[in-house]
Each structure stands twice: as C-alpha cells, then as structure tokens.
Simulated scan of single mutants.
Amino acid sequence: MADKQISLPAKLINGGVAGLIGVTCVFPIDLAKTRLQNQQNGSRLYTSIDYFVNDVIENVCFSLSGAAVNLTLVTPEKAIKLAANDFFRYHLSKDGQKLTLLREMLAGCGAGTCQVIVTTPMEMLKIQLQDAGRIAAQRKLMPQSVAPGGPVEVKSPTAMQLTRQLLKEKGIAGLYKGLGATLLRDVPFSIIYFPLFANLNNLGKRGADGPAPFYVSFLSGCIAGSTAAVAVNPVDVIKTRLQSLTRGSQEDTYSGVTDCIRKILRHEGPTAFLKGAYCRALVIAPLFGIVQVVYFLGVGEYILSYLPKRNN
C-alpha cells in the first residue's frame, strides 16, 4: 500500500541517518571489495579474504581510507535514494492501491537515477583513497613492476587534495568520471532491490496495514541487498576500474565501458567480472538491512515533530 501522505524532509532525514549508521558498520569490507576488484592478473596481491589478515589487521588505521568521504557524502546519497523511491512509489500508486511489479520497478529506476548525482563523485574519491594502499603494497612486493629510475614513494592524498586536483585539471567532469557505469550499476540495482525488499517485507507485516517487525525489515534488506549486489557486480567491477586514476605499471588503463569490457575479457577472462562479489554481498546485505531498520524507525518524523510549526 502506498502511504496516505509522504513527508519528504522526514524521509530525507531518515535516509541520511540510516546511511551513516549502515556505512560505518560495513566500511572495512567495502575497502576489501574495492581492492579485490581493482587488482589485475600479473599484479595480484589479494587472492581471498586473507586480505583482512594480511592488510587490514596489520594496518588498521589505513583501512579507514576513504571513510571520511563515504561518511560525508553517504548522508545525501542514501537520503536521495530512499526518499526518491518512496516519492516515486507514492506518485505511481493509484488511489492507494497496491503497486504493480512494473510500477515498483519504475520507482526503483527513478531512485537509482536520482542518486548518481551524489554517488558518482563519492565513489570516485572513495576508490582513489581505498586503492592507494594496494598500489603502495604492490610497489613494495613487486619491485619488477617499478618504473625505471627506482621506486617512488607515493603519499596517499586527502579527499580535498584529490577534489582540488580533479577540479583544476578536468573541471566538474573530473568528479563525474564513470558516470555512465555508475548509472548502469545503480539503476538495475534499485530496480531489483526495492521491489524485492518491499514484497519480502510485506510478507512479515502484522495485519493488512500494520508495520513489519524490525527483524523482518532487517532480513528483507539483507536478502534483497545481497541479491541485487551480486546481480550487478560485473558492472561494479567496470565502474571501479574506470574510476581508478592510479595503476601499477603492468595494469591496463581503459578509455570507456566498452574498452574496459574488452580488455578484461581478453586478459583476465569472464570470471574477472565476479571479483569482489562475495565482499560486495557482505557489504550490501548488512548495510541495507541496517539502513531499512533505521529508515523505518522514523527518526525524521520524530525530529520534525519537535520543531516549531510555522503558522500560515
């Protein structure tokens, strides 16, 4: 059923708070996912989840690379994604009747399209910061890949330094590199995720109009999130590769989505598109489980109820 009314400010607050809490909980796994997806044959450092033992545990502070960017931008990103889905579901419903599957998918499509405004620059900056440790480790462990002239110590840039550099060299387009691949990932993800979550969540509702218990929303978010994440993982690999600015000397560079697909198939084979899939599922499942529970707690409505109402 569609809600009788929708408070967009409250939904935006709910989405922002939900995103902050969810991303904080799963960020280390997201770091592993990015590095696994970015490594290419001939320069592989991580072959499995032993990444956590060999890298994260040995350098815990560095494992938070990109966390500040993610935590800063995930608030508007999740706010837009979740609120937009509710907004489109509300306006696509007919007289409060249950949405058809097609309309649920259209609402998800709208939400996925809206979110890339924030998602693309967020992912662009996050990937550079997350992958810096992999490049540094590769140069230490694979001296044969170091360029002539000897090893060069590369300091990890900050998010602000990266932003200024990209804006100076390429303008606003620099922050939106990989926009097409981000759309190809986020739109199908939302088309799969939101209808699946809504229907799973409805199965656990108390009565026709009653809310589902929090654990039902959590499990529904986990199942729907992991399903959608694995389904779009090949595009996520492409997006990650396209948005990575720094590479090892033996690693391919890509001019676009088609070039990326062709080179991955030629040099690494079809299985390369599944790199990081299990890490991505481990990230998205609890992330969206937590996000949906927090979102449906109605923090935004609670906060707005205490604000003074303006008299017209």
Rank of each mutant, 00 (worst) to 15 (best):
S7A: 12
S7G: 13
P9N: 05
K11N: 07
G15K: 03
G15N: 06
G19V: 01
L20W: 10
G22T: 06
V23W: 15
C25G: 02
F27D: 02
P28V: 14
P28S: 15
D30I: 05
D30E: 09
A32P: 09
R35P: 01
Q40A: 14
R44F: 10
S48I: 00
I49L: 05
D50Y: 12
F52N: 03
D55T: 02
V56T: 10
E58A: 11
N59Y: 02
S65L: 05
G66I: 00
G66V: 00
V69K: 01
L71I: 12
T72A: 09
E77W: 07
A79I: 08
A83V: 07
A84Q: 03
N85R: 14
K94H: 05
D95C: 04
L102T: 03
E104S: 14
G110C: 13
G110Y: 08
C114M: 13
C114Y: 09
C114A: 10
Q115H: 13
Q115V: 00
V116K: 02
I117C: 12
T119F: 08
T120A: 04
T120M: 08
L125H: 03
L125E: 02
I127K: 09
Q128P: 04
Q130A: 06
G133D: 14
G133Y: 13
R134D: 01
R134V: 01
I135P: 00
Q138D: 01
R139I: 00
K140Y: 15
V146W: 06
P148M: 11
P148T: 07
G150C: 08
G150L: 14
V152I: 07
V154C: 09
K155A: 11
P157M: 11
Q161S: 11
R164G: 09
L167H: 14
E169G: 07
K170S: 04
I172T: 09
L175E: 06
L184H: 04
R185Y: 08
P188C: 05
F189K: 08
S190V: 02
I191F: 14
I192F: 15
P195G: 12
A198E: 14
A198N: 06
L200R: 10
L203F: 05
K205F: 12
R206W: 07
G207R: 09
G207N: 13
G207D: 13
P211K: 08
F214K: 10
Y215K: 06
L219N: 04
S220G: 06
C222H: 07
T227H: 10
A228V: 09
A229V: 05
A229L: 07
A229T: 06
A231F: 15
A231K: 11
V232I: 10
P234Q: 03
P234S: 00
V237E: 07
V237M: 09
V237W: 08
V237A: 04
V237R: 14
T240P: 12
T240W: 08
L245Q: 07
G248W: 06
G248Q: 07
S249K: 06
S249G: 01
Y254Q: 09
T258N: 07
T258R: 11
D259R: 13
D259F: 13
I261K: 14
R262F: 12
K263I: 00
A277P: 09
Y278H: 14
Y278D: 04
C279A: 08
C279H: 15
A281D: 03
V283T: 00
A285N: 08
P286L: 11
P286S: 13
G289T: 05
G298T: 01
G298Q: 07
Y302D: 01
Y302S: 03
L307K: 05
R310Q: 12
N311R: 15
